[in-house]
Design a protein around this nucleic acid. Sequence first.
DNA 1: CCATATACCTGGCAGC
DNA 2: TGCTGCCAGGTATATG
Length: 271
Amino acid sequence: MPELPEVEVTRLSFASAIAGARVLQATLGKPLRWPLGCPVQALVGRQVLGVRRRGKYLLIDLDQGLLLVHLGMSGALSFGPAGALPGKHDHFDLLTTQGLLRLHDPRRFGAVVHADSEADPVAQKLLGHLGVEPLGEGFALQTFALGLKKRQAPIKQVLLAGDVVVGVGNIYASEALFLAGIRPTTRAAKLSKPRIAGLHQAIQTVLARAVQQGGSSLRDFSNAQGQTGYFQLEAMVYDRAAEPCRVCTTPIKRMVQGQRSSFFCPTCQKI
DNA sequence: CCATATACCTGGCAGC
DNA sequence: TGCTGCCAGGTATATG
């Protein structure tokens, strides 16, 4: 579920509500992808200063250190009045003076990690290699082109790798490549400058639009207020194998790259 | 350094 | 109904 748009939509849905809250209690459920990295009791008494995002990570700033939250494949946060006991798939609770922040994550590929600062090696191990933010000022065409020129791998896989540009996952990689008219199999280094410019724009267009639409809710994504997203309704290719292209009616194709599904229109995406 | 495969975990679905 | 196999939004890690 969670690519950049879903993570950003989640952030927007609880950041202001939790800001200033004091942690009353913290609880862990089953193990997540990585250990918390500090005694859970150490979170009690901390104050939440705000919530930022880096790639697909949420950074919850505390008065001492910060929490890095990743939603993995199936994670979702909720923030609201405390009440219900944790369910089978609720694996992290942060009870605060302003509400309960809860991580629901059936597959447990997600994580909550404490670090003393962003410069902390614990944080750097997760954030250090990340590429540029596609919706930030720093997403320059020139640097993007330079990054792609060094890579012989298929463009789809370079986008997913996240070391050139962050936040583009399996849905939005396919969608951005469709918008740019580029085949997912094209080697990144072989893209011409105009095609790179088109992709640079397409990534921003797709991600910004998805944020506007509240993200994609394929099965179970919802923001911290429990609201689902609608971008999946306007997806051009993702999960539309054999369905007619919305532009030219050619059946959309599905293929596998790096053990992940890619979707494209063989007519609209020639090279 | 780069490209690709593997592992982690649970649930939903199609097919028999 | 129950079993099996496949599929799913990610990414650190290991292996060429």
